[in-house]
Design a protein around this nucleic acid. Sequence first.
DNA 1: AGGGTCAGTTTCATTTTGCAACTTATTAGT
DNA 2: ACTAATAAGTTGCAAAATGAAACTGACCCT
Lengths: 149, 149
Amino acid sequence: MRWSEIDQQTCSVARALSEIGDRWTLLLIRDAFLRARRFDDFVERSGAARNVVANRLEKLVASGILERRAYQTRPERHEYRLTEKGRDLYPVIMTLVAWGDRWHDDGAGPPVRHQHRGCGKRMHAVVACSECREALDPRETRVTVRKER
Amino acid sequence: MRWSEIDQQTCSVARALSEIGDRWTLLLIRDAFLRARRFDDFVERSGAARNVVANRLEKLVASGILERRAYQTRPERHEYRLTEKGRDLYPVIMTLVAWGDRWHDDGAGPPVRHQHRGCGKRMHAVVACSECREALDPRETRVTVRKER
DNA sequence: AGGGTCAGTTTCATTTTGCAACTTATTAGT
DNA sequence: ACTAATAAGTTGCAAAATGAAACTGACCCT
């Protein structure tokens, strides 16, 4: 199976990864959450090659994760902003941050600290059940596969 | 910057992606959560080429996300199991599932349904503050970058 | 002896990257 | 007018990664 066909798997992870699962894409989305807007912002912050950034931004716009809008004419210049679909990747980024903080601590503590405005405390992201808000554990989840027609 | 150097960024997302951010890796981890254990399980379920699976499993073992252990001798055969570090990726997978379910619905509903044993309801994963359990929103989070030495 | 299983490895063509230089449109400075 | 600078890409090309299929090696079963 080619990578370009993984969205044909009957699996939401595969479908998600078909849009955001390649080498630089999630890093660009991270930068978008950190308020990168312009092409050169993304190039500098992500560290990816210019042609790769151009290609990925184009794909992200095509899949509706970023929006490309003119911020000036003469010369025409565009910026990239997260759409609702893109902002909805916040949980993915935050769980990655939490995992990276836990397992890639270089001894100096996490590179970035997160404070929750609601309760004022330092925190990290955990996943919870949408219904009862209890922390989610693999053993506490029952998975049912939909029948194929 | 080459992909092989992104773990040098002072960013937990970058460090996390240096281990799990390439084309097939997260799909293999998904399969591990779905109880794939043997080499051919991973090949069949992921859809990746055998050499790619071999290479990725080796890397996942090297980074401590999977553990390779013999399940028989004569002939020696090994299986791959998630370590604690690997199981700790559950939140990442579940938020990807939730995003895929929401944005890649093919009209027939999500491929897999998740029921929380605790409360008995159908649910999806949300991210919450580790301290107060309130749902997390980008606007409700304050980010402080650690000073570089 | 012949066939099957499992866990890879090898080979080779095709794709994808990474880097640097180049382009285009326009403004700012001298 | 000439020169530089800025922003947002594009182009060319070498190096690396992927993908498909065939092959290997150790063993078991009949």
